[in-house]
């Protein structure tokens, strides 16, 4: 059970390993806070839809499962969108159309199809929670790096000294691609080091 949760954090991390859900990942991570908010919205949607899909999985005719899953996901996304608009107006404005785009985040449909529709509610819940958490962590890391270099702060706290020249490119689209590319590389280095250590031990 615990393993269903932890695999999403590292071994099957949705962003660094599976490379899923790229659009929101790259678009909203100009600030760590935005990355975190997007991560939480996605976490909410993936957990809710996985639980629902798993609990109705016996009643779903095979041929129409994808449209049904999609409707379920779109419903939760709309709910998340209205929730943000009502309670976190500024954040919702900053995320803009990328909140509704959670609908087509391959991560969510992927979890519904590959895991929740084949497993019990408990396991589906843990799996979705892990994937959502892994997604959020990756977004926060990416957002922090870009915000630190592009605006000199992290989560709005100024970290660089005053003379620091901001690397505007990090907030631009190009910076998103470059940062994520390098982070994926770093992830692979750590992983191969770990594997090497295991072998040596």
């Amino acid at each position: 059970m615990i393993r269903e949760f932890t695999k999403g954090l590292w071994k099957e991390n949705p962003i660094f390993v599976q490379v899923l859900g790229m659009c929101p990942t790259l678009a909203v991570t100009t600030r760590a806070l935005f990355g975190f908010s997007m991560g939480m919205a996605t976490l909410f949607v993936v957990v809710c839809s996985s639980v629902v899909v798993s609990s109705i999985r016996r009643f779903v005719p095979r041929q129409v499962r994808i449209p049904m899953f999609t409707i379920i996901i779109a419903t939760f996304v709309t709910a998340a969108d209205y929730f943000l608009k009502a309670n976190f107006y500024q954040i919702s404005k900053a995320l803009g159309p990328y909140v509704p785009l959670i609908v087509v985040n391959c991560l969510i449909l992927g979890r519904a199809e590959a895991f929740a529709s084949k497993n019990g509610v408990g396991r589906a819940f843990m799996d979705a929670l892990g994937m959502g958490a892994g997604f959020t962590c990756a977004l926060v890391v990416l957002g922090s790096v870009r915000e630190l270099l592009g605006a000199g702060s992290v989560f709005g706290y100024r970290l660089m000294r005053d003379g620091f020249t901001e690397w505007v490119v990090m907030i631009l689209p190009a910076g998103a691609f470059l940062t994520l590319g390098l982070l994926v590389g770093l992830f692979n280095i750590i992983n191969s080091k770990k594997r090497g250590a295991v072998r040596a031990g």
Binding site: F59, I72, A79, Y82, F83
Partner: peptide
């Protein structure tokens, strides 16, 4: 197939109406 799709569709629409009505004044 049609019943399953319809059921999901109706449930989705009903819950969205509910959420929409609660969120709109705040927005």
């Amino acid at each position: 197939m049609i019943t399953a799709l319809l059921a999901v569709g109706i449930l989705s629409a009903v819950s969205l109406v509910f959420i929409y009505q609660r969120a709109i004044p705040k927005i």
